[in-house]
């Protein structure tokens, strides 16, 4: 039986960590104040394992930390040269895949994609920009959908279902034509989406924005202006 007081002992980068049964590597690490970079993962949502930024080596095999359960004696590599490079490459891919114009984006300073790039010290992506044609849906009176900035993490899709009890978003197409769609024939205005839906807040980039509230926080006071993403986890207390 799963006993909540039971502990599972594993190591992350050589440091012993105590996890609980049922936890994923990412959750156990977070409880131990170890940050594993991630994008498509969000607390209280089913893990998707789609961005792959949380890739770690678990007992030698590369796995997404957000989906892989911990096991006794597991040896996890997280902050290694190899994994940092792989993650950096994935972040670079997301930047060149979409159209990320940070200089005028309302989410700048609070964007998790941008913040990860900052954390990794990326000054320019190593891959050529694709400059795809993506569309924008401003039909909803309160919410803007800008697919130029969408990284297909699916957080809005899951948040709408799992937290809002709705089904506003979904994915259509496949491969390079995969895109975020709404649960209506034409646009978001035809759905039951509302500005205070958790699905909107779940967007890590500026792809879903509540209208008329942008740029409210001055530069210098935004979430990631001074401290890297993940530092709140690294500075937290180890949970028992």
């Amino acid at each position: 039986m799963n006993n909540n007081n039971q502990k599972i002992s594993l190591t992350i980068d050589g440091v012993e960590v105590q996890g609980k049964p049922g936890q994923t590597i990412l959750e156990a690490a977070e409880a131990a104040a170890v940050y594993i970079p991630r994008l498509c993962w969000m607390k209280n949502l089913t893990a998707a394992g789609s961005c792959r930024v949380c890739s770690v080596r678990a007992n030698g095999r590369v796995q997404s930390a957000c989906t892989q359960p911990i096991g006794p004696g597991m040896v996890v590599e997280n902050d290694t040269e190899e994994l940092r490079e792989l993650r950096r490459n994935l972040i670079d891919m997301l930047f060149v895949e979409g159209n990320h114009f940070c200089m005028f984006c309302e989410k700048s300073g609070e964007c998790e994609l941008q913040a990860l790039a900052y954390r990794f010290g990326i000054t320019a992506p190593k891959y050529p920009f694709m400059f795809p044609q993506r569309d924008l849906d401003a039909s909803h009176p309160e919410i803007l959908v800008d697919r130029n900035r969408c990284i297909l993490c699916g957080r809005c899709v899951r948040a709408s279902q799992e937290l809002d009890g709705k089904h506003v978003f979904g994915f259509v197409g496949r491969g390079t034509t995969k895109r975020l769609a709404v649960n209506a024939p034409d646009n978001l205005a035809q759905t039951d989406a509302e500005a205070d839906d958790q699905a909107v807040a779940a967007c890590p980039t500026g792809s879903l924005l509540v209208k008329r509230v942008g740029y409210a926080v001055p530069v210098g006071q935004r979430k990631f202006d001074h401290s890297p993403i993940g530092s709140e986890i690294e500075n937290s207390d180890v949970q028992d």
């Binding site: 930047f95 159209n99 990320h100 114009f101 940070c102 200089m103 005028f104 000054t123 320019a124 992506p125 920009f129 400059f131 795809p132 044609q133 993506r134």
Partner: peptide, 18 residues
């Protein structure tokens, strides 16, 4: 040295790329 977003990713002028 590439200085600034336009040099690095095309910046605002690159909006015409679409």
């Amino acid at each position: 040295i590439s200085v600034g977003d336009c040099a690095i990713n095309g910046g605002i002028p690159a909006m015409r790329n679409m």
